[in-house]
Amino acid sequence: MENVLVKKDKQLSSGNGVEKPLQKRLEVLKTYKLYIGGKFPRTESGRYYLAENKKGEKLANMCLGSRKDFREAVVAARNAFGDWGSRSAFNRGQILYRIAEMLEGRKAQFIDEIIKQDNTLEEAKLEVDVAIDRLIYYAGWCDKFQQIYSAVNPVASSHFNFSSPEPTGVVSLIAPQNSSLIGMVSVIAPIIAGGNTCIVLPSFSKPLCAVTFAEVLNSSDLPGGVVNIITGKVKELLPYFSDHMDVNAIAYCEKNEEDKKLIQDKASLNMKRTQFYNTKNWLSDQGQSPYFIMDFQEIKTTWHPIENIGGTKGGY
């Protein structure tokens, strides 16, 4: 197939009236913002921090998210939960697949950002590839994990009785801090595949992909509020992620024991479910499993009487 873009480029530079620029074109920089309720606001606090790589290159001014940003995100996540949690499993699978498609299409941008954040080209390529495949993996699970983890229970009384998983609700998530993309995607995917909504605190030191991923989500038919992303400091926001009374569960992907104690202590205020994933290599296959989906599911058991009609002992 002919490459239309290249051909067009040639035309532009060859005598159609447009002059070749004398200087290198000035690049349009991207503003990295928060992602709350399907919109891209700046932090209400007006604060920012400078994201730099190890070489000391300035990458971007990031929003330094606040407690109020988080609380607004919880409202958005709660509002989105009713719709998202009751969508058909098939539809959720379609949307997760669509997220993977969008990510595939913007591969180059993510690779570029990951390289800027101190990784090699090969590492960056692998990370994006695994992230796309992980989304496909969970897209497939959306309408299957229920079948694996449900049960029809043979109760002794005359009742029809079955148990099946349902989403826990609103989840706050401290994403793995050592990667820009794959850690975050690996934890968001099972949470939303199971019908939950979430508020994510991505990597503080490698924050670029989180915001770009928000743009991917926003163009994937994922309803606003299902995933909310707030860049900021773990130490500052952790207490709020842990003690908010309208959050049903919290996931934490770091190793700090004091943080874990703080989370479980504050989570007790409203019996939040806590999940710690601190030993996972998210790039390997151990970073994916339907059990991650089940970590944010509740089992509901339903009973209904069965009428016993006399005189049918011989069967029909």
Binding site: A151, N153, P154, V155, A156, S157, H159, N161, S163, T168, N248, N270, M271, R273, E298, I299, K300, T301, T302, W303, H304, P305
Partner: peptide, 26 residues
């Protein structure tokens, strides 16, 4: 809620999981 009884109530069985949502525990 973790258990829903339809046209019945307070039925229990060893084969039937029991437990709560939200502040009813986990």
């Amino acid at each position: 809620s973790g258990v829903v009884w339809a046209n019945t109530f307070n039925k229990f069985d060893p084969t039937s999981p029991f437990g709560g949502y939200k502040e009813s525990g986990y």
